[in-house]
Design a protein around this nucleic acid. Sequence first.
DNA 1: TATGAATGAGCATTCATTCAT
DNA 2: AATGAATGAATGCTCATTCAT
Lengths: 217, 217, 217, 217
Amino acid sequence: MRTVNPLKLEARRREILAAAQACFREKGFHGTSIAEICSAAQISAGGLYRYFASKEEIIAAMAEDERELVSGMLHEVAEAEDFFSAIESLFERFSTSFCDRSHVALAAELLAEAARNPAFATIARQTEMAMVADIETMIRAGQASGQVDPALDAAEAATMLLAAADGLGMRMVILGGFAPEEAGKALRNFVFRYLRAPLPEPGETRERTHVRRVEEG
Amino acid sequence: MRTVNPLKLEARRREILAAAQACFREKGFHGTSIAEICSAAQISAGGLYRYFASKEEIIAAMAEDERELVSGMLHEVAEAEDFFSAIESLFERFSTSFCDRSHVALAAELLAEAARNPAFATIARQTEMAMVADIETMIRAGQASGQVDPALDAAEAATMLLAAADGLGMRMVILGGFAPEEAGKALRNFVFRYLRAPLPEPGETRERTHVRRVEEG
Amino acid sequence: MRTVNPLKLEARRREILAAAQACFREKGFHGTSIAEICSAAQISAGGLYRYFASKEEIIAAMAEDERELVSGMLHEVAEAEDFFSAIESLFERFSTSFCDRSHVALAAELLAEAARNPAFATIARQTEMAMVADIETMIRAGQASGQVDPALDAAEAATMLLAAADGLGMRMVILGGFAPEEAGKALRNFVFRYLRAPLPEPGETRERTHVRRVEEG
Amino acid sequence: MRTVNPLKLEARRREILAAAQACFREKGFHGTSIAEICSAAQISAGGLYRYFASKEEIIAAMAEDERELVSGMLHEVAEAEDFFSAIESLFERFSTSFCDRSHVALAAELLAEAARNPAFATIARQTEMAMVADIETMIRAGQASGQVDPALDAAEAATMLLAAADGLGMRMVILGGFAPEEAGKALRNFVFRYLRAPLPEPGETRERTHVRRVEEG
DNA sequence: TATGAATGAGCATTCATTCAT
DNA sequence: AATGAATGAATGCTCATTCAT
């Protein structure tokens, strides 16, 4: 008698997911058929349905995978001892992985789907909350160290930061003639201006520890 | 009768477009069938195809309509005599029309489509360029009047602003429990912090014409 | 009050027919839409239906036109005083007008249609009968003059001749690599061999007026 | 189950093809819908498309089937030891299988399609070439045995023979009142007259082995 | 357990024909 | 007499999903 091997099962599941992701990136959710995923994952249609109950579930699982990946990365970044190095590391990741056309296309599609489908909305919300929480932590650290304006609401600022990065990423991909470095510079510029602690009022003698001014324009 | 009536034709076209938009808002591009649009527009399938060559063309026409609407609105706003009143007017519009769930869903879907389909990408690009141009004008006016940091690159700032508004709007809709006023406040807060002219260095005696500080948190 | 001008009506009808024929030649019956014919004939859909009750009727009318043309031509040829010059003239026409790809395509399509549709079959039959009759006349003349074997059934031979020409024409167009001159030569070769009077038996003293031998191979 | 059964697949494919052929024979290519074929083959629309990529491919496959059938038959006939028995066998087949109205209708339609569609043209060309080759062989044998005029170009004669048979078959179907036997007789008459070796000139003493004269008219 | 053949509703699109004007 | 907008049934084809083996 064959015992079910849950590890092998999980491994196969991840293989399918990876294949699906590759397809989705290339052709989008609506442009990818189950048959194509089956081909890519070297599995039969019937077989695939032992791992996922529907196409929607595949998309959702993939989205959740992505969520864990991004969340993990962010969490890691947020644990950097210093606010400054954390934010720098963040920029780097942004330029590195967010520049990919297919990644942004997928994100946009996921967002569009989430706007209609509660199941996806839940996943998106969870991702968002986790990310906001991590960035919020970073910002609070920055506030504690005097690098970030203490008057800012950390949660709001975190959301804002994500929103800006998101919007910029999409513009980068859709507008085409828009280099990743430019986007990176614009984002960095925005972050520092938005978060910066105000200059000390005349007479005050506070250390200038706040986020350094960046060359603009 | 002999005379072709281009007005009536155009009117019918707009009716169909409006019906299509309503369908798309409710169920999305992929969730709406031509038959549904026909039902909504009270026209037969064959009739519809006298006005549009394909479903894609309907979507594109609708997107362009939206483009003209938004561009027009923005242009109007940008022509306000004063930077401050312009930006206030902008916030108001943002809260009023961008709050609509279906509107954002449509925008997200369009974006997702634009990431794959060059025809839509072109439309999106044109919209974006027109909007950036108008906001750039606004920002330059603000820089001239000393309300906006002259060190800022106006075009970059305009793009940034749109990106942030976009990202925020989508978060508002997808995160659900996120009130328009909060989003509005967050956006306003962002804009003023991002655009504000630096405080005069100690010793300088410059009028404090820059964007007033807003209560935060 | 406008009087109906039957001449003008007939003229317009022929214009439409000519336009339709051009379309059919280019794209075939099934590949041509009424709308295309309307475009080509510069007439509205409604207008066209004042002249013809259906698409089928247009095809039929065109076929009948063709019939009259071909019949007329053949009749003219058949009236040549001499069998030999008649048959030569026929070969020339064959090479000239039957070589055209679109002509053969149309003929093939008409034949296919006639095999299913009695209305077309009738037209085809009439054409055929008229042509057979004329060629029969020619052959009889040839028999009278001793150029054609008197033992031949003239009607059968006429049908045979048409069949061979038809089949050869289609092969020429469909097989492609097959020059009109080759086809012409093959046809001529066939006709002379098929029709030729037998050589006089030894001892007979008959003038050698029969169809001259053609160089073969 | 694990094993793919290519035999069963092929069998089902042939079933579908047979059903399609029946439909096409009855109503023609354009008059037969995929739904009708599905009904006849007892298969769903989706199922059918597992075997054929398009309606066109079904027609093409059927045409190729026919090609193999006819080619095979001809090849068999051509291998007869004696020219005379081969040609007799051919006439018999012609009368037997070419007499069928639906068969000729199909052939005519295929020809019409081939005149416009290169894919069909290729198939038609291959069929033709195979048939010509076989008949050419027959004719050469006849020339070797002195039954056929050695002056004839065998390839040309083979084409001519097919053309005549084709044209005659179509006339038979389209003209309606035209019995298979008459057509058969006409064809035989044609073949013998066309192929016959010339009578020996007076003085020559050659055996009269050439094709025997047939009673005419 | 895995296969892949089969399903069948659903889709966008076409087009000969009609008819109010 | 002529227009051209409108019809609507029909078409070829797709694809997520099921199930006998």
